[in-house]
Design a protein around this nucleic acid. Structure first.
Lengths: 344, 344
DNA sequence: AACACGAATGTAACCGCTTACAACCGAGGA
DNA sequence: TCCTCGGTTGTAAGCGGTTACATTCGTGTT
């Protein structure tokens, strides 16, 4: 591998000049610059990022750590590729305009993972933490070492930059639509993992909103795991109840799809007999029959904002930490009883 | 940020000893080790990866570069998150067992992207190139600088490690199933992007296989872009033909779903009137009605093998470059006319 | 002609860690 | 007691860039 020294020698200049040319800097006579560039091209010189990083105290790399939800590999493959992946693409798109790269690491939250992240923190200039990949305490420790921006994290942890989505508002909108809009009174809710802050938050918001409407009640089926299969299971639980709800909201789309298909298998018409709704607005929700009413999150935007914020921090911005909350969007389709293609 | 020097001073030892402790190396008296570890813990020392990389000539980072297909951001969000993302997760899972991290970069193939990759190559120990993110020539240039393993690349380029899937075999199996198995004679094929090697390969294999069966013919609708929308468009083209095929195979699942939905919208029964098949075995294919018959690729395995191979190369393996081809799997569901839940 | 000055370039220290090699230390052997 | 030797630890030279500061050089001044 050629180094600056090689290039310098071949071009008959000093390493300082080579460096200046590389960095597109000023103060190099054009003729000299050309000579150096020619040599660089010829020997295929690419500066070693480690050396640059050491010397400039800047690695031009940011890390993104996320959760690897399903333990089951098949699940990951078919269900898991959603939230975090969209964020990754969004962040990468932002980075494309800079010369910073994206390092990523997934893992199940836990001690061992924390060690991995700790080591990783030596390789990056800043960190994006998606969902609650790290416990608040660990987050805070990291934040002392380098800039950290949390994405969709529950524990807003004072003093930390966070970019999140207004889950409760989305659920409230949905609840209002089902009750006030469609006039459903007996609602059901299929909950997600108890340790998923999103799931908890959605359940709480939905319950509260529904109960605030006179005459409405919610039958909660807790403990889903965000998978289609757990949606089917929940549907069976609902079927065993004496009174099946008129409308069932689910903590995410995957489970909603499972619920729909299981209910349909039992001869229940959707939305005729029971309305079903999801949360997330994933692609499959558009192609199932009936199309799924859901709440869309600006996931991409989440990534974009977080990346931008992190880059600012790395540049040295010292403005106080801020929590930014993005709005959700109600996506009305047929599964809730709306006519086809209705849009809010 | 504390450095080895700080730790050394506080622990009353030399930096060499601190380094030895960090690297879990031998030859350090237990009592000394403990003292050092205590200090490390106390000051929260995390070694600087740049310095380590420079000194050890190993960055413990590998890069993965992939294509960002859709230009349209919405498309990316709902359709694009498939192949490459599964690979990313698979690679990351392999890396989890090591202390190497994953750096990634997406982009539209092109000159500017190539420059980005070139710069990126200074940050990593090796590179994984997914699909044809880089032109063969560029690939070869990179491969001279560092270990490179191509994933699902068409240009097997001699002298390069490649891990790929046997697309043609999958399509052949499917063609045989449709013709010999179900007895369809008039087949249709909805092609993908002309610049997507996979799409080209699939079309060729399907055509050849079908034509080898006496009495069978293929009507090709070229130029899809792998999106659901382009599937719908293709369906309209097929509807305008004098004779609609008995079975339509598509270059991927997304398009197949589009084809199905558009045909159904025109009152055509699937698989009653027309059978439809896809390729890739994505999640939505399982939940559409009827469930989609398709060809599954071991995408995850692709990532795992490639990562393993790259790590070996980085370790210095000098065995000759090898192309590894993984088998596909025919996934028979209802859309081709098979009874529900049939498995091959 | 001597001088001042700014542009261009070179010199060398430094970034933080690793590691070859040297130095040291205590115990067992002669 | 002196020497040898293996186990520990320290010294210092890199690793490959960057950059503050010094140096050189050509030109316009006086």
């Amino acid at each position: 591998m050629p180094t600056v020294y090689d290039v310098a020698r071949l071009a008959g200049v000093s390493t300082a000049t080579v460096s200046r040319v590389m960095r597109g800097s000023d103060l190099v006579r054009p003729v000299t610059r050309d000579r150096v560039l020619a040599v660089i091209e010829e020997v295929g010189f690419v500066p070693d990022a480690s050396a640059q990083g050491l010397s400039r105290r800047r690695k031009e790399i940011i890390g993104l750590v996320g959760l690897e939800r399903g333990v089951n590999e098949t699940d990951i493959e078919r269900d898991g590729l959603l939230f975090v992946d969209v964020v990754v693409h969004a962040v990468e798109a932002v980075l494309r305009g800079t010369d910073t790269s994206l390092l990523l690491s997934f893992g199940p939250s836990g001690e061992q993972f924390h060690d991995r992240i700790r080591a990783l923190s030596g390789k990056v200039d800043g960190l994006l933490v998606v969902e609650d990949a790290l416990a608040p305490a660990q987050l805070r420790v990291l934040a002392r070492r380098l800039p950290v921006v949390a994405i969709a994290a529950s524990a807003a942890g004072a003093g930390l930059d966070v970019v999140r989505v207004d889950n409760p508002a989305g659920m409230r909108d949905l609840a209002t639509h089902l009750t006030t809009g469609h006039g459903y009174r007996r609602l059901g809710f299929v909950g997600g993992p108890r340790d998923a802050p999103d799931a908890v938050e959605r359940l709480a918001a939905f319950s509260t909103a529904v109960r605030s409407v006179p005459g409405c009640a919610v039958d909660v089926v807790p403990g889903g795991d965000f998978s289609e299969a757990s949606g089917r299971t929940a549907a069976r639980v609902l079927l065993s109840r004496e009174a099946i709800p008129e409308a069932v909201a689910c903590a995410n789309d995957q489970m909603a799809i499972g619920v729909m298909r299981e209910l349909q298998r039992s001869g229940i018409a959707i939305p005729g007999d029971v309305a079903v709704t999801g949360f997330d607005n994933i692609f499959p929700g558009r192609v199932v029959e009936p199309a799924l009413t859901t709440v869309g999150q600006p996931v991409r935007e989440l990534g974009v904002r977080a990346a931008a914020r992190l880059l600012e921090r790395i540049e040295g911005s010292t403005e106080p930490a801020r929590a930014e909350t993005l709005p959700t969007e109600l996506v009305l389709r047929r599964s809730c009883g709306c006519p086809a293609e209705a849009k809010e």
